[in-house]
């Protein structure tokens, strides 16, 4: 039985302008200790997918329209606020994009660090403080006995993200959801933080869902990748398969836009156009307007199908068509 099994999750926002279909029928599963990547452009629904599992989207305007999310046998979507509170920070933890704003500036590091322990275990304050100091040491913060008494503003961004990681993992959760944990950090720090997450994951056996819009990050940490576009998954495959033989036109376009893989001296490739308006999604294939191949897109919603064993993709014939010359055009264009 997988640790987390999400089926046909639908999360919509009922706004004044209409219904925003932020997540529209998403399914995935994750084994104990595994690492799953969710990639996609800004606004594709990556964060909403994960926040809705823990009941962290504002309701209203948000509403979970359907689906199930079985975590170790219980459906998170049916748990309700008080049930979810016992899961949050205890069995499933989160870290977020911007470490500068995610720690409470009014509270000392120690108070924020020990809070999950005090809430979810029967550790007393003295022992919790000892654990907090150890946790800070584990994420590579120097002089933890002293820094534990500091306030967040005394730390740099990279340091704060380390504190966030220490705080998320202090209860040894079974699942860590990392929502673009390196996006706001500068490049040299990014690598360190990624390595730290991998390292802690190995030490604690935690499963990780890694949200990012950077395919390069995914290739470094994930076993399996889901590519998200306009509230749906367009492709899902083991990481090496996805990189060696991407099936969907959007995945290929994302890959083509990794700067490091592009030819030097040429202008950088970016995907033309913008993601579709979630208020008025096209009936058929949502990637059609931006695809290089213009003809032959489905005008009904393409099914998410297993195109090869273990390799799923949104089955729109035009998006899946790879003729050699077109692929190189896609890649270097």
């Amino acid at each position: 039985m997988p640790l987390l099994d999400v089926k046909d999750l639908k999360v919509h926002f009922h706004t004044r302008e209409g219904i925003v279909r932020a997540v529209d029928g998403v399914s995935f599963s994750l084994e104990k200790g595994g690492t799953l990547g969710i990639v996609g452009e800004s606004g594709s629904g990556k964060s909403v997918t994960c926040y809705s599992l823990l009941g962290l989207i504002p309701m209203p305007p948000g509403r979970i329209e359907g689906g199930t999310a079985h975590f170790d046998g219980t459906d998170l979507l049916q748990l309700g606020e008080s049930g979810l509170r016992k899961v949050r920070g205890k069995r499933i933890s989160m870290i977020f994009q911007d470490p500068m704003t995610c720690l409470n500036p009014f509270l000392k590091i120690k108070d924020q660090l020990i809070e999950p322990l005090l809430l979810h275990t029967d550790t007393n304050k003295t022992d919790a403080l000892k654990e907090a100091i150890k946790a800070l040491g584990d994420v590579g913060i120097r002089d933890p006995e002293k820094t534990v008494h500091a306030y967040p503003h005394e730390f740099s961004g990279g340091m704060r993200q380390r504190v966030m990681i220490a705080m998320a993992l202090i209860t040894k959760p079974e699942l860590l959801i990392a929502d673009e944990p390196t996006t706001a950090l500068d490049v040299t720090i990014q690598k360190q933080v990624l390595d730290l997450i991998k390292d802690r994951q190995k030490a604690l056996g935690t499963a990780v869902i890694f949200i990012t819009h950077d395919l390069a990050v995914v290739s470094e940490v994930c076993d399996h990748v889901n590519v998200m576009y306009a509230g749906r998954f367009v492709e899902s495959a083991p990481t090496d398969v996805l990189f060696k033989s991407p099936a969907h036109a959007y995945t290929r376009a994302l890959q083509a836009s990794i700067p490091a893989l592009q030819e030097k001296g040429k202008p950088l490739y970016t995907i033309p156009g913008a993601p579709p308006n979630l208020l008025a999604l096209p009936k058929g294939c949502t990637f059609a307007p931006r695809a290089a191949v213009k003809d032959g897109h489905l005008d009904t919603q393409p099914p998410f199908a297993e195109i090869k064993p273990g390799h799923f993709a949104q089955n729109c014939p035009a998006c899946l068509k790879i003729s050699e010359p077109q692929m190189s055009k896609d890649l270097i264009l």
């Binding site: 949050r88 989160m94 977020f96 409470n104 809070e115 999950p116 809430l119 979810h120």
Partner: peptide
């Protein structure tokens, strides 16, 4: 949001 994610 961080606090809520911790189960506060």
């Amino acid at each position: 949001r961080t606090a809520r994610a911790k189960g506060v």
